[in-house]
Nucleic acid binder design. Structure first.
Length: 568
RNA sequence: CGGGGUGUAGCGCAGCCUGGUAGCGCAACUGCUUUGGGAGCAGUGGGUCGGGGGUUCGAAUCCCUCCUCCCCGACCA
């Protein structure tokens, strides 16, 4: 390709509304342009990169035995009503009516559609297991789209769905997909990790997310320092210690703590470590009423863990100041003593002694409180904390360290959540109807492009891996318009490279050297060849890799084999 | 949805407070010069000042209203 026929829509100035490096660079390098909030046009250069991602994903899906299908973006409400998600899904589901007044939605995902397809097409256990996949546009009406393509409303996703007669077969496909995902992200040249994940609103049991590691990532991931344990902090278990509780050293005392409401204020006011203050949170119960959650003062509640508790409302809802009054307490001075609602404690509170609690009375706390003497031990004790740096790893090996990641893939064992709701049955060997069990496997194709940039760029621009690069080689002539000899040499080299199957971008614009170099670096072409009259005399071509600091002189005759070697 | 901001040429912004018919930089186009790291000079084109309504002799500027986009928060395959 020639730049005279493939305009590079690069811009020098950084857009004012972009925060993330990937967002800025995607706009500056001319990969995307914003159309409206969370909606982007993909320019030729950007689309070329996205197609590279798709190609790798397609190859690996085929290798794993998945079959490509394509399902509509616009989906009838009936199927969503059947699964129950027409009600469950909030305003993130974009709904619309057709001219006859029939209700539809823009698909944020395709479980309902594929389950409907499968129940119509698959009748016998002999047709199982089967995995379908598609690469399709999704729409989610995000509350706050941001970070460019990273969290947009419309995006491209590869989603796959597998159907099985039993869990063993599901596990087999799940493992194969896990392996396929590992191959895909490795081939794309990404630094990534699979992590244990929450299966979220999509439902199901076992689930892994694939994260590209980057400081700007929206998710926090807990890693073990010693083993390969990795989990989303949303999910990461915090195990109880076997530490003994110290014996009480002082009598319980009610003390005046005027206007000291937060753990920080109280601990400072009383000169007590936050870890020795008991945090009492009131949340709404599943049906009527409220539940009190107890945590050490220096730890944060993990809301995902809390809303999974039996008897606690999901999604989690904190009690209002008004509601706290109704249960006989005061916001800022809540404590378990005399509180007449169910109590759930994090196991870490059991080892606390001589601690501080709210007195359920404005301006007062109790100090030197002790279990069993002043307070009964809570009946329900579980894991409520958010994992933090230094916690012991749940597998017993090493401690937890926290890193940030961008979620680019997610695989789930759905089980029969959709197949039973939508009656997706097949006949088994005994000739009896049996509900199929399902898995689902997603990759955010467009997000991968942003994640790759986030992970690999410098102050000059993008640094593509060979696999993702829109062009592998940039051919940069110096002042070609002044030298016919140079033009002939470049044209010849361009043809040779093309014939050798090397995707080359020939910069035949009449622009100055610096301009050309900055453009090629901004758009991240991994290999650059510079030809000038000077080099022609010596018979050498100047080569520089995008990440290299020095040029290399390569004899003209060897340049093709040299590049083939580089590109393998 | 709550809070804060914003909207003026393709992009980035000034002008608004104190009303008088729109400007700067970049980009684009033309010409000349320049030519190994985002060139210089000269010239050209391009704007319903987010929309609607009002006040006024006169509104980008003041008032009302609707909308957009951005930031913070709640949400999240």
């Amino acid at each position: 390709m020639r730049t005279s026929q493939f305009p590079l829509n690069t811009v020098k100035e950084t857009p004012s509304d972009a925060e993330l490096a990937s967002h800025k660079l995607m706009i500056r390098a001319g990969l995307i342009r914003k159309l409206a909030a969370g909606l982007y046009n993909w320019l030729p250069l950007g689309l070329k990169v996205m197609r590279k991602v798709e190609a790798v994903v397609r190859e690996e899906m085929e290798r794993a035995g998945a079959l490509e299908v394509m399902m509509p973006v616009v989906q009838p409400s009936e199927l969503w009503e059947e699964s129950g998600r027409w009600e469950q899904y909030g305003p993130e589901l974009a709904r619309l009516n057709d001219r006859h007044g029939r209700a539809f939605c823009l698909g944020p995902t395709h479980e309902e559609i594929i389950t409907d397809l499968a129940r119509n097409e698959i009748k016998s256990y002999k047709q199982l297991p089967v995995t379908y996949y598609q690469i399709q546009t999704k729409f989610r009406d995000e509350i706050r789209p941001r970070f460019g393509i990273m969290r947009s409303r419309e995006f491209i996703m590869k989603d796959a769905y597998s159907f099985h007669l039993n869990d063993a077969s599901l596990q087999e496909t799940y493992d194969r997909m896990f392996e396929a995902y590992t191959r895909i992200f490795s081939r794309l040249g990404l630094n990534f990790r699979p992590v244990l994940a929450d299966s979220g609103s999509i439902g199901g049991n076992l689930s892994h997310e694939f994260h590209v590691l980057a400081d700007s990532g929206e998710d926090a991931i807990a890693f073990s320092t010693e083993s390969d344990y990795a989990a989303n902090v949303e999910l990461a278990e915090v195990i109880g210690t076997s530490a003994e509780r110290a014996t009480p050293s002082a009598e319980m005392e009610k003390i005046s703590t005027p206007d000291q409401r937060t753990i920080g204020e109280v601990s400072q006011f009383l000169s007590v470590a936050p870890a020795n203050c008991l945090k009492t949170l009131i949340v709404k119960a599943e049906e009527e009423g409220f539940v009190a959650l107890l945590l050490p003062g220096d730890r944060e509640l993990n809301e995902i863990k809390a809303e999974k508790l039996e008897g606690v409302a999901s999604p989690l809802e904190m009690a209002s100041d008004e509601e706290i009054k109704q249960i006989g307490s005061v916001s800022g001075f809540i404590g378990p003593l005399g509180l007449n609602i169910p109590v759930v404690a994090d196991h870490a509170v059991l080892t606390m002694s001589d601690f501080v609690i709210g007195a359920n009375e404005a301006g007062f706390h109790h100090k030197n409180v002790n279990w069993e003497r002043d307070l009964p031990l809570p009946k329900t004790v579980t894991d409520l904390r958010t994992a933090q740096e230094g916690d012991p790893s749940p597998d017993g090996k090493g401690t937890i360290t926290i890193a940030r990641g961008i979620e680019v893939g997610h695989i789930f064992q759905l089980g029969t959540k959709y197949s039973s709701a939508m009656k997706a049955n097949v006949l088994n060997e005994a000739g009896k109807g049996q509900t199929m069990t399902m898995g689902c496997y997603g990759i955010g194709i467009s997000r991968v492009v942003a994640a790759a940039i986030e992970q690999s760029h410098d102050e000059r621009g993008i640094i593509w891996s060979d696999e993702l690069a829109p062009f592998k080689v940039a051919l940069c002539p110096m002042n070609m318009h002044k030298s016919d000899r140079l033009r002939e040499t470049c044209e010849k080299l361009y043809n040779e490279l093309s014939e050798a199957g090397i995707d080359v971008l020939f910069d035949d614009r009449k622009v100055r050297a610096g301009f050309m170099f900055s453009d090629m670096e901004l758009i991240g072409i991994p290999h650059r060849l510079v030809l000038g009259d000077r080099g022609l005399d010596s018979g050498n071509i100047e080569y520089k890799g995008r990440g290299d600091s020095e040029n290399q002189e390569i004899p003209m005759a060897e340049i093709i084999s040299f590049l083939k070697e580089k590109l393998q």
